[in-house]
Design a protein around this nucleic acid. Structure first.
Lengths: 209, 209
DNA sequence: TGCGAGCTTGCAATAAGTGCGAGTTCACAC
DNA sequence: GTGTGAACTCGCACTTATTGCAAGCTCGCA
């Protein structure tokens, strides 16, 4: 088993593994910021984290995965939101709550998480490989969310319809973000982005609200 | 210039180029079908099409692009549908028409196009690199469509909202297809897929219709 | 304490993709 | 029809991601 099941006094091995994983992320962020994505080789990252190049791939299946270390947790957040739905919530309501929970910051403000998020956005905009990975991560998340939504509303949503619904909501957010983040200046003002995103999805998803 | 502008008696050079391009596609489809995506190297394809390996990359920027040779034309179809909108059409109406036009077959039934489409579907399901490329192509198309939609309804849609709207519709279709095509048996019955896709998007997009 | 699972790593190999530079071929203006 | 430059072809060398393998090390646990 590669992953801690349900944290209960992590063993030495697990602590070690987490530390190494984090070291890789830190090194990667640092180097990507300094030398760019293409200007940084996996070997560079491994060396900076003081492990063998070969070992890198024991932690991340590919160079770009380094930039999406918390994708699983995000899905969990959405799934939790679905599980905690109120008795009167319609699927669309639950979905909106779930997605806004995902967007919200997770815990205490974390410097590295913030740096990573910024860096990731920039690289998604500029590096095709990273953009591809981001889309990949997104559709995987969509699928998981759709499955849980269908299960939560088993009597009114089949799998396919649930997937269509989730796709519509995520697609709307995504489409808006794509344009919003396209120009560099505006992308750096998170409050502005949040506001315009809200406006756009309000209109695009109005028929549901 | 690499591409014919607006076909007017293609020059010899262009004819040659098209022929080579088509030969590459044919060879690629053939080899992918026979040996699988990972079992086929770019060098194999180039050799089968009787050109140098290096030259392959003058036609396609990457191995996976070979599988999406008609993406530009599809976007054109959607844009044309937007341009031909009726005076009473709402943005959502136009969008639905545009997207169904894109899905419709283009011209005469073409054996190779059909084979390519089938192959592509299978590889999207099974090869991450191809899936990534497909998503990439899709969001590019989304962006172009959103731009034109915003222009067509300049007085009621800004860029961001148009992108959100397009994202919602494309996302719904895409989400449904993802689940529908996930299992191999069902995916081979186009009529069944069409029907269930229609059902799912009817529900997911009902608020608009 | 000892064993088996899991981790680390070096080495070699494969394949995508790129820059370069020389040689061809074509479109087009004169 | 002739010359010229743009466009195309292609071999070569190189970088880099990614994988399989096998040897050696570490840790969890019975």
């Amino acid at each position: 088993m590669r992953y801690a099941e349900h944290m209960s006094s992590p063993t030495l091995r697990e602590r070690k593994r987490n530390r190494t994983r984090q070291a890789l992320i830190d090194a990667g962020v640092e180097l990507f910021e300094r030398n760019g994505y293409d200007g940084t080789t996996v070997a560079d990252i491994a060396e900076a984290a003081d492990i063998g190049t070969r070992t890198f791939f024991g932690y991340f299946a590919s160079k770009d995965e380094l930039l999406f270390p918390d994708s699983a947790r995000r899905v969990d957040v959405a799934i939790t939101a679905i599980a905690n739905r109120g008795p009167d919530d319609r699927p669309a309501d639950v979905l909106l709550r779930a997605l806004s929970d995902v967007a919200a910051p997770v815990g205490q403000p974390d410097d590295m998480l913030d740096r990573l998020a910024r860096l990731r956005l920039r690289l998604i905009r500029t590096v095709p490989a990273v953009r591809g990975r981001a889309l990949q991560v997104q559709v995987d998340a969509q699928r998981a969310i759709a499955t849980h939504l269908a299960r939560a509303y088993a009597d009114e949503l089949d799998d396919v319809t649930a997937a269509a619904l989730v796709g519509a909501f995520v697609g709307a957010i995504n489409g808006a973000l794509m344009v919003l983040l396209a120009d560099d200046e505006a992308a750096d003002d998170p409050e502005h982005v949040r506001q315009r995103l809200r406006d756009a999805t309000d209109v695009a998803l109005r028929p549901w609200r």
